[in-house]
Write a protein that binds this DNA or RNA. Structure first.
Lengths: 198, 198
DNA sequence: TATTACATGTAAGGGGTTACATGATTTA
DNA sequence: TAAATCATGTAACCCCTTACATGTAATA
């Protein structure tokens, strides 16, 4: 049901399916992903439901655009969703599941590689958010304390990304320290007995 | 594909579908969720594929248990999955989407309520993890530095939970401070003009 | 001339949830 | 005697992804 309500939220401003895809990719990628093949039928369904209305508009190239907009009934549904308690979903973290079983490989160097890669991916994302944060703060004198309400709420979602990615990068660093200390101990425990038994 | 490999990982120890459900709920809830209605057909499919084998075993009450176990081919598939780069999925965070649009309600008290509830849910989870962490550390003298390899990897997944939940609770606290400061300013800006225009 | 961007869709299939069906044994 | 636990499964449905179909206009 979440995609429905996200589309309602975005369609407080009129937009086509194609436009919405661009918004998902450019501005909401750290919150929700959606493909065009899911967006188009969802828009039709929401229009059938009376939560959206659409009109045809011509485009410069390609077929005519279908531009959707929220209706009063849609706005009511959106507000009801927003009044709900925060919708925390179940965890489904494949990367964490890999780590859970990674001792199967019986090779600490593989675990170290896992964290090196993980850290790279996370810190790329973190740096992108930090860059966005910096550009915003430089461009907008009201940032962050006196932002208009809509921007302030978006700013809070940005802070979430910075906090949780920051925490995860710190986790990687801590883990790498522990893994390397363990590797040292393994090496020491491995070499000495061999020498002794010779 | 992740559930397949998680089941392979768990079935290095023999277990029935019913047992696996209990493991998901009790030990893997912060990593992955699965329902019995998904587990049973998946086990059959993995057996057809040659990654699992099963035998019938009688139970004290209810129908006979079907106990599954990984095969050498399954272990190969598991290891290949573990060698893959960490499988970070796309974000799909409904609660964050709610916050993104929450200015629609035009009521900072609603935003404050959102964070109060969010903080409750997160700190419940955090406290459960902290409690588990504490009990483990008290029960196991090898904790955490000299844990056996399998336990050490599970410990690292636990640290992830502590880091990211800790970061999120800090985010809630920071947000609540900012929201309350904003509410103060709103009140000040609201009351004075009214008095003036009278 | 080939690729990219614009623009809308359908079809097939995978992954997951909710509800239903069945029935024995233990506990309250 | 009713409820909870043990135990296995099927059916219908929803959400999402990948692949396919179609065509125009600008850009490299």
């Amino acid at each position: 049901m979440s995609l429905d309500h996200i589309l309602l939220g975005l369609l407080r401003q009129p937009a086509s399916g194609y436009d919405l895809k661009a918004i998902f990719d450019q501005h909401m990628h750290y919150i929700w992903a959606a493909e065009l093949s899911q967006i188009y039928p969802t828009l039709q369904r929401l229009e059938d439901k009376g939560w959206l209305r659409s009109r045809s508009a011509d485009s410069k190239r390609g077929p005519a655009r279908r531009v959707y907009e929220i209706t009063p009934a849609g706005r009511k549904a959106l507000r009801e969703w927003l009044e709900m308690t925060p919708q925390l979903g179940q965890e489904r973290n494949a990367a964490l599941a890999q780590l859970y079983f990674l001792s199967e490989l019986a090779d600490l160097a593989k675990t170290e590689r896992y964290f090196v890669r993980m850290r790279e991916q996370l810190s790329d994302r973190l740096q992108a958010l930090q860059r966005f944060d910096r550009l915003w703060s430089e461009a907008d004198p009201s940032y962050p304390e006196r932002l208009p309400s809509a921007d302030f709420h978006i700013y809070l979602t940005l802070r979430k990304g910075l906090h949780s990615l920051g925490g995860l990068v710190a986790w990687c660093d801590e883990s790498l320290r522990m893994i390397r200390a363990r590797a040292e101990r393994e090496k020491a425990a491995d070499v000495r007995p061999v020498k002794k038994t010779r």
